[in-house]
Design a protein around this nucleic acid. Sequence first.
DNA 1: TTAAAAGAGTGAATACCATTAACCATGTGT
DNA 2: ACACATGGTTAATGGTATTCACTCTTTTAA
Lengths: 252, 252
Amino acid sequence: MAAAGETRQDGRVTALTRRERLRAELERDAKAAARRIAAEEGIEGLTLAAVARGVGVTPPALYRYFNGRAGLIRAIYDDITAEFIDTVDRAARRQDPDDVSAQLHAATQAVLDWSLANKVEFDLLMGAGFAKIAESEESIPVIIARELGGLFGQLFARLWNEGRLTCPADEEIDPVLAAQLRTYRSEVGLEFPIGVVFLMVVCWRQIYGLLCMAVYGHHKFAFDDLQPLFEHMIDDLLGLLGLKRSPNLRLR
Amino acid sequence: MAAAGETRQDGRVTALTRRERLRAELERDAKAAARRIAAEEGIEGLTLAAVARGVGVTPPALYRYFNGRAGLIRAIYDDITAEFIDTVDRAARRQDPDDVSAQLHAATQAVLDWSLANKVEFDLLMGAGFAKIAESEESIPVIIARELGGLFGQLFARLWNEGRLTCPADEEIDPVLAAQLRTYRSEVGLEFPIGVVFLMVVCWRQIYGLLCMAVYGHHKFAFDDLQPLFEHMIDDLLGLLGLKRSPNLRLR
DNA sequence: TTAAAAGAGTGAATACCATTAACCATGTGT
DNA sequence: ACACATGGTTAATGGTATTCACTCTTTTAA
């Protein structure tokens, strides 16, 4: 019976005790159930009771795994962030490493596609759901900005280093805005002039607008498919960076 | 006691019976309480029980006034829409009637200011809250777009009629996008070429992005005050329309 | 090997909430 | 004065989060 002596000092294989394995499984299943329910019913329909039913356990049991409903949401928030960043990162890496235009294009398209395919998750990461999580936690606000900003920032850095960007000089930027850009730069860990940071923010502001239009759909009555508007936007933005649409774009 | 014979055939003064007056008052108070609670607690904290407490009545009584919680939210949605449009409209009308630049600028600033001062309401009108209401109701999706689109559309119409706009010709626009623009134009009731409609949508996409950044605050860690970014944006957008910032702008 | 400790689940209890139904008081109009 | 519509009540149902006390099992240590 007690033949389960897997736990070795050298953590070679099956270094997990039975309890740890079951715990990991239930935690994984609970988060999966939570995401499925949230996607189907919306975030307000995500109840501990429903998750408990989904994994065949009573609601109080979930308190051994998450800090209540808020803790569960926070837990899937972290998963979703990782998944989102990974998706966008993969889309960029699928391009020719020297084709920055294609990488920017593909990454942006991936952001739109993921957001449309995961509306509830988008709301949690970058919409109203974010605000609720952010007010209770301290470290949250920077996560998504740092990860996504870092990803796009690498591409902007390459453009800057190649001398292909035209952007305002430090002195031309309004002092208040300049201070904000410096804060952003240091939080995200970027290493180019704030004029380039300004370009990033201008691009993001436009992308984000299209994203919210797509996800929240208050113009859905006319713009059911936002791809045409996206095509125009991406050309605009690439132009702003002195680029043209790459002929070698690979969208999976 | 029954001396309340106000109801005349000619509805001159006090054409309201006692019951009607009390009903109107409670409905008004309930909606006011609901908006106060929503602003303080967030939309998910808006419960019928809390509203009932606020107006000194038991929860079931509110069912005589609203179709449950969803009906109450729908009711304040209509109020909020009217208030929002009125606010923006006033800001535009406060300008010189011939100064279209100032009117556009002031209206846009008013949109930002109102959104920041009424984040929960913004979410209801143009964010995640909208999507939830829209899926149950049919007429909803067009309300805010028609009202706001009509308001800005008037100004774009003047610019177009004065021949000051440069925009793509009908043939230059991607057919799918053109169809969407025509749908939008007819729903909102605009009367200029779809190239001008395209300009409107491009502007709105950018404004909306800044709004969502401001309201949902996922860049708040660096851009606490979005006014500097707004200033840049408004110059960009006015430039896109062949305008310059008006020296006669009046922001209340 | 065996006993203590830690962990993970349960059921019961509390306290909210929405919603419906039955019922009662009162204002309204004939 | 009387019938009726209106607007409120209480009670009941069923859903939710959360805490607590308790039990069973696994793990760990003597």
